[in-house]
């Protein structure tokens, strides 16, 4: 029988080992983004030169900006549509409602590769050229279910009598939405936006199917860079993306905590 102390020690060693394993490769990337040695096998002194090189690489910077643009737009549109969808599913009765919820569930559960195929096929069938619009529509769609469940959870939580009172006093649906529902679910809306933004920025698989030569985004560019070998610019990109993600995650955690 293990003593309490031994068991505690064992548990914490296990947790520490897992976290060391999770963080070590990322920390090495960040450290190497400042390392004068190209291959990063040893520390050759602090440098900003890879950051300079990154910003000189116009195609890469453009791809980075394109990714941020898609993520920002997709998150915004997905948040608007997703909030309205959550409202429809929570508040209204309509035909095919079960099918609609089912579709959201399918998007959430399907492996990215399957979604990627379905998007590719529908864009070709509709004659939508692969590029900006196809990327935007695909990103909006795969972000939607995450906005819907975040907002829906918040909608379920609040007092129905408020809405009934407003209705009895003659407020129209759009007025109820604007003046009561929107302010009450606002934290969830922000959280949904941030989640969508990071999901969009993180996507590789779907983007690689629905992108075209006219509009290049980061994952595709990075993929071709790291496939051939080591590139210190990727370390810099990783560091920048990590900072962006950390800011967003912290922000969303703070926002969601406020309601408790």
């Amino acid at each position: 029988m293990m003593t309490g102390f031994n068991r505690k020690f064992f548990q914490w060693s296990f947790i520490t080992a897992i976290f060391a394993w999770l963080y070590l490769p990322i920390v090495l990337l960040v450290v190497n983004s400042f390392n004068d040695s190209k291959y990063g096998h040893e520390w050759k002194g602090f440098t900003w030169k890879w950051y300079e090189k990154l910003f000189e690489n116009e195609a890469l910077v453009q791809a980075f900006l394109n990714s941020l643009l898609i993520a920002g737009l997709a998150a915004t549109v997905a948040t608007i549509i997703g909030t309205l969808m959550a409202l429809a599913i929570h508040r209204y009765r309509f035909p095919l409602k079960g099918t609609a919820s089912g579709m959201l569930f399918v998007v959430m559960m399907s492996p990215d590769i399957v979604l990627a195929i379905t998007f590719l096929v529908v864009f070709i069938a509709l004659g939508i050229q692969l590029g900006f619009w196809s990327l935007l529509i695909a990103h909006i769609t795969f972000c939607l279910p995450f906005v819907v469940i975040t907002v829906y959870a918040q909608l379920k939580g609040f007092d129905k009598h408020l809405l009934e009172a407003a209705q009895d006093l003659g407020a129209s649906e759009s007025r109820i939405f604007r003046l009561i529902i929107l302010p009450l679910v606002f934290p969830a809306i922000i959280a949904g936006w941030l989640l969508s933004f990071t999901l969009s920025l993180d996507d590789v698989i779907i983007s690689s199917f629905v992108t075209g030569p006219s509009f290049e985004i980061l994952p595709i560019r990075v993929f071709s860079m790291v496939k051939v070998g080591v590139s210190p610019e990727v370390n810099v990109l990783a560091t920048l993306l990590l900072i962006i993600s950390l800011l967003l995650v912290t922000l969303s955690t703070l926002l969601l905590r406020r309601k408790y």
């Binding site: 070590l24 090495l28 990337l29 920025l201 990783a238 993600s245």
Partner: peptide, 30 residues
């Protein structure tokens, strides 16, 4: 706190995390 720490790497681009693993597993990697 630990759950948060678990999620943080999950928000870094998974392609970049895969690249990090590629570097770690190389002949001169960690």
């Amino acid at each position: 706190v630990l759950l948060f720490l678990m999620i943080v790497p999950f928000w870094t681009n998974s392609l970049i995390r895969t690249y990090a693993i590629k570097l770690s597993l190389g002949n001169k990697g960690v």
